[in-house]
Amino acid sequence: MIEIKDVSKLYPGKQKTITAVKDVNLTINDGEIYGIVGYSGAGKSTLVRMFNGLETPTSGVVTINGTVMSELKGKPLREARQKMGMIFQYFNLLWSRTVLENVTFPLELIGMDKAERIAKATKLIDTVGLQGRENAYPSELSGGQQQRVAIARALANDPQLLLSDEATSGLDPKTTDEVLELLLKINRELKITIIVITHEMHVIRKICDRMAVMDEGAVVEEGNVFDIFRHPKMEITRQFVSEEETPQLNDTTVVINELLAQVPTGKIVKLTFHGDQAKLPIISEMLRQFPNVDLNIVDGSIHQTQEGSIGTLYLQLLGDDDEIAGATDYLHKMRVGTEVIRGE
């Protein structure tokens, strides 16, 4: 278990002191995937570097399985680091080494015997799906493949904890999903705790169990990923969630405006479904109860999170005012989030 207690990090400067991390308290359980989301400069990279002692807190303590990281120095610190893996946005592979040599690197550091480390590295290269590329150099691989090598390298010392610092930020959407699948598989099969730092809500939704939102060095919201997606409390969290819910928000606005121009008598509502509601035939039931309402689907999406699905639907409702009011009341009654985007 990882405990962060009252952790702050200040960088004294000539003009003024910069607070990179401000009074952060977090508990991360063994075996979970914990996401920390925030815009760049929010302090999440500084925070994650305190887990393996690359940064030390100005005040507060980071405790990993009972060991206070900031008290470690020299050999004990290096040994603690050998039990953690870390992956980065730009992969940070050694270009002068082949894939195999990159993966054996951490094993060389602990003085493992050559035959043993080659056997182990070869197995890890299989795990990340790069068999056959052992003798390639990083420059001959795609970004996604390089990150796989970095993941294999991070796993070489059988870590209990894997730190991922914007590991998918440099990758295209398809490759991002492949790397996320791999991280999920590693978490499930090897029972490794993973801490994911990202500015993309997509990454959190896809693999994280719990999450924290950071803004200007402080954790402003924390909890279950599903709950936060459903009821974001802070404005910044709402921004992150809405980015992810409607990835083509601008397109949707365009579509709504076009529709309004074509059919000036429309009411546009945004419906949000979570979990079980997304599985119920609520809309068809609504139409059965209010048969004079005409309905036009403007846009919609359903996302899978680790705990269930979240759906968003943009509808144009046409017809008698009373009927429409009844229909939206029905939706409210069914606990569907209903938001009127444009009235009459």
Binding site: N52, L54, R81, Q82, M86, L109
Partner: peptide
């Protein structure tokens, strides 16, 4: 040499000396 590569070696628990002869020298060869 990209500072990230040196940081990665530190994160793996490399000693200063290991960083010199396993990272700095080969990467700048």
């Amino acid at each position: 040499i990209d500072h990230g590569v040196i940081e990665a070696a530190e994160a793996m628990g490399a000693t200063r000396w290991q960083i010199i002869y396993k990272v700095l020298l080969p990467e700048s060869s």
